[in-house]
Design a binder for these strands. Sequence first.
DNA 1: CTCAATTTTTTACGCGCGTAAAAAATTTCG
DNA 2: CGAAATTTTTTACGCGCGTAAAAAATTGAG
Lengths: 343, 343
Amino acid sequence: MDGRKIRNMEEFAAVSGISRPTVSKYFNDPDSVKASTRKRIEAALEDYDYRPNIFAMNQNRRLTKNIGIVVPYLADPFFAEIARNLEWRCIEAGFTPILFSSHGDTAHECDILDGLRALKPAGVLLAPLGRASDLKAVEQFCADVPTVLFDSFLEDIGEAFVGSDNDQSVALIVEYLCRTGEPPSFFEMETPANPNANRRRLAYIQSMEQLGHEPDIVRAKGEGWDFENIGLTEGASAINGKAFKSNTILCSNDRLAIGVLGAAYACGLRVGLGNGFALRVAGHDDHPFSRFTCPPLTTVSQDYEAITERSFEALFAVIESGGRNSDRLTTLFAGQLVMRASA
Amino acid sequence: MDGRKIRNMEEFAAVSGISRPTVSKYFNDPDSVKASTRKRIEAALEDYDYRPNIFAMNQNRRLTKNIGIVVPYLADPFFAEIARNLEWRCIEAGFTPILFSSHGDTAHECDILDGLRALKPAGVLLAPLGRASDLKAVEQFCADVPTVLFDSFLEDIGEAFVGSDNDQSVALIVEYLCRTGEPPSFFEMETPANPNANRRRLAYIQSMEQLGHEPDIVRAKGEGWDFENIGLTEGASAINGKAFKSNTILCSNDRLAIGVLGAAYACGLRVGLGNGFALRVAGHDDHPFSRFTCPPLTTVSQDYEAITERSFEALFAVIESGGRNSDRLTTLFAGQLVMRASA
DNA sequence: CTCAATTTTTTACGCGCGTAAAAAATTTCG
DNA sequence: CGAAATTTTTTACGCGCGTAAAAAATTGAG
C-alpha cells in the first residue's frame, strides 16, 4: 500500500517494473504474457490497485468487451430472470454486460439501439419488442453489430435466434387439458405485442383440430405490457359474459393467466381440476411467480437456463469468429408440462 | 444525405461550416452557442447524423453525464418498477442511466461499485443490499462519488436517503387489523437482509403494545431473496404447527405474504375478512403483483413515484451544486393503507 | 457609425491508452 | 553451449475529443 496514487498505465508500469506496452497487453489478455511477468503485474496490482481507464481503452478499439442485453420489459419477471442469467454468463466469460429495458416502447427501443452502437459492443443479446419493434431500425442495427435475438422471432434478422418451440409446447398442454377434462378455450390479447402469441394461437388451433375439437378463441381488449391487469378485467367480463365455451381456459401466457385467476376469484369460481371446481386455468412460460398463485398455475415451462446458455453461446461463437460468418441458426427449446393445481 | 460518412468531429465541423471547438461546445451544452449557430449545427446534424464518440468525450471529463442506478435484486418487481421510473427520470433530465443489479450478492455489489467508479458517473442512485452490504466499501464509494441511497437505510452513508416511513406505515396497518379483527401475528425472515425489516418488526411491537396487545412474532428460516418460496414453505409449516397465535398474519413484506397466501391455500384455509374465512393475511409495500393475488392482498403502499422523484431530485441537487455541500437529508414517505380482500 | 461586449475561430496541447516496428533480452532446446 | 524462438523493451504515432489562450469576427447599444 504505497501512498502514491497511480494515475495511469505509465505510472503503474513504472512501479511494477514492466514496460507499458506489456502491461497493456496484460490487461487485454492476461494469458498473452509470460507467466512470470503476469505474476509480477498481479503482485503490483495488489499493492497499488490500479485500473485502466475504460474510456481511453475503448476509444481506439474497433470493438470492446461490452455486451448489450436488451429486453422489452424488465418489470416482467420472466425477462428479469433471463437478464439475470445472461448478465451472469457474460461476466463469467470476461465481458461487461450492460442491461437495457425498452419499457415496451418502440421509440425507446430505437434509442437504446442507437446508444448501443456508440458503445461499440462486441455483441448484443436482444429480445425485441416484437410487433412493436421498428423492424428497419432493428435490421440495420443487426447489420452493424453482431446480435443474437431471443424470445421474439423476427424474420431474417440477427445472427441467430433462440426461443421456445411454441408448436410443441402448446400441443403438449392442449393435449393434457383435453385428456384430463374439457378441451380448452384460448385466451389472448387482441393485438399481441409478442410474436410468440401469434404462434401460440396457431398452434392451439392446429392442436385442437388434430384432436377433433373446435377451437374457441377469446380475445381481450387492451394494449401494452400490463398483462395481469388485462387478464383480470377482461377475463372477468369474459367470464361474466359467458364468452368461454369451455370450462377450461388456456392463456397465451402466465401473466395473463394470473390475471384470469384473479378474475375467477372475483367471480367466485373455484379454480382447479376435478369435482368441486368450476374452472380450469392454464398458462404458458412457467413464470417465476406461477408457483405461488392460488391455486398454483398449471403451465408449460420455458427452459430459462437453456435459452440463456444457448443465446450466449451463439453470440460468443459469432464474436469469436470475428463477425458474421455462421449461418443464421434458429434454436427452439421444447417446453415441459408443469402440472399444478389450476388445471 | 450526403454519401460521405462523418468519422469525427473535425469532419462534421467541416461539413457544417462551424469550427470544431464550437461544435464541441454545442455538444456539451446546446444552449452555450448562439441560436443561429445552433440551428446551423442541427441542420447539418439532420443531413449527416454524426454522434460524438462517447469514449473520447468522457476520457478527459472529470465526470460524465452517466448516472448509475443500482438495485439489490432486479428480479423483484418492486425494484424493477423503481428502476424503470428512475431510468425514465434520468433520461428526461439529459443523463444516461446505467442499470445494475447486485443480484443479492455482496461481492457483486462491490464489483458493481468498483466498475461504476471507472465510469466516472455524475452521480449514483443506490439501493444497497442492506445487512449484506460491505459497509466499508459502500461508504468509501459514497465518499468518492455523489450517491443518494434509497430503500435501504445505512447509517451516515451517502448524500441523502429516501425511503418509506416504516413506523407510520406499520402502525397504520396494525391499527387497521386490530380494529377489524384479531390483533395480528408478525411474520418475517429469521435474518432479514433488508434493514426495513428490522424497522418494521420494531414498529409492529410498538404498535401492538400501544394498543394493549401482546406482540407475536414468527420467524421463517431461510436466507436470500427468494421470499415467496420461503413464505410458502415456512408459512405452511408455521400454520400447520400452530405457530401463529392469531388468525391474522401481518407479513414483513408483500412477497412473503404472497408465499403465505399460497401456504394458506395449500392448507385449505380460506383467506379473507369476515365470516367464513379462516385467516387474514396482510403485507407491506403494495408490490406490483399484490393486486392480482387470490384474494387480492391487503397491504400498505410505498409511494413508488414519490420515492423515485425525490431520489432523483436529491441527486440532481448534489450534482448541480458540484459535489457534496447539501446536508445529508433523509426523506421518509408515508404509506397508505390499501384495503383489499385478504384482510 | 463607433466602441465595447459577445461569440467564434485559430492554434495548440494533452488525456490515457492501443499498437506497430525494430531492437534487445530472455527462454527453449537440440 | 549456441542458435532459434519467444517475449519484452524502446520508440513513436494516433485515436477523438476537451479545453485553454489569443486573435478575429460578429453583434448590440448608444
